[in-house]
């Protein structure tokens, strides 16, 4: 009969049943209106004109090019952040040195920078009027309004994801396993790959999952550095915006539905990881 109860630990200190129902009801209604309806509206709008139109709007050359570019950018940005995340967490978590927490704050910095500002810093660096602009132009290297700029902006915005998952976990695990491996004669690399990496694999996967979702969905920063050149520097989120501004709503929602589907898959995998490996992730469960 207990549709809504409090956990036994808290049985003595809880609200009356009516209050509990009221709070639960308010929560569900609010979450439905604020979070679930926006998700639902994407799929409804995408399939408004039927399955054929949906498929057709995804199979245009521009849409396919956008999907390919998004995959390419992600395929560069995610491994780059895995390598950085592993290196940074090893050097920060396994050793004691001064200024460590300041360094962690610096790594977290990209999370508190507006995506648009993140795009702007690369324009000021590599753009035609930027610090390196004249040099790059003289050597015919284009970074802004080209794929390298999109990759750079994506790496910037996904920078902390892997490191901030691994650092607290590695700190909590300590150095005992590694020291044992070394004393048994394993080399540094072998110790890392057969002891440290397996110890943190689920947290690493968790970080990669979040990093991947953000990399594929990044919009503001990429919007500044890409120049919106169709078929060339247009990622999926940018393509959504262009289609929407052309009043091609079904196609815009069709491409958006792919990204929403990605978000749902990410949420499911993330929740599964949290349930299955809660012990290993709990220390690092920020957002």
């Amino acid at each position: 009969m207990q549709f809504i109860s409090t956990s036994p630990r808290l049985a003595n200190v809880s609200e009356p049943l009516t209050v509990r129902f009221l709070l639960l009801g308010l929560t569900l209604v609010y979450l439905l209106a604020m979070l679930v309806l926006p998700l639902g509206v994407i799929f409804v709008e995408a399939f408004r004109k039927g399955y054929e139109t949906y498929a057709a709007s995804l199979l245009t050359d521009d849409s396919i090019a956008a999907i390919q570019l998004t995959l390419l950018v992600t395929a560069i940005a995610v491994p780059a952040n895995i390598i950085f995340g592993l290196a940074a967490s090893w050097s920060i978590a396994k050793y004691q040195f001064k200024g460590k927490s300041f360094l962690i704050t610096l790594i977290d910095l990209p999370f508190s920078v507006s995506p648009v500002v993140a795009g702007l810093i690369y324009v000021l660096m590599f753009g035609a009027q930027g610090y390196l602009g004249p040099y790059l132009q003289a050597h015919h290297i284009q970074i802004i309004f080209a794929v390298p700029g999109v990759v750079l902006a994506t790496i910037f915005l996904t920078f902390p994801f892997v490191a901030r998952q691994l650092i607290p976990l590695m700190q909590a695990q300590g150095n005992d396993d590694e020291e044992a491996a070394l004393s048994l004669g394993a080399g540094g690399l072998r110790t890392f790959f057969s002891v440290t990496l397996p110890n943190v694999r689920w947290a690493l996967l968790y970080g990669v999952l979040l990093c991947n979702a953000r990399a594929m969905g990044e919009f503001g920063a990429v919007s500044i550095v890409s120049g919106h050149i169709r078929g060339k520097t247009n990622t999926m989120p940018l393509h959504v915006e262009i289609l929407y501004n052309e009043y091609n709503f079904v196609a815009a929602f069709a491409v958006a539905s792919l990204l929403a589907f990605l978000a749902l898959v990410t949420l499911c995998l993330k929740t599964a990881l949290e349930w299955r490996y809660s012990g290993e992730l709990a220390v690092s469960r920020g957002h």
Binding site: L39, A213, A252, L267, H287
Partner: peptide, 13 residues
Amino acid sequence: LPFALPTAVAGLA
């Protein structure tokens, strides 16, 4: 959901 959903998609929705 607001973390996972790309911002452009959320905006459209």
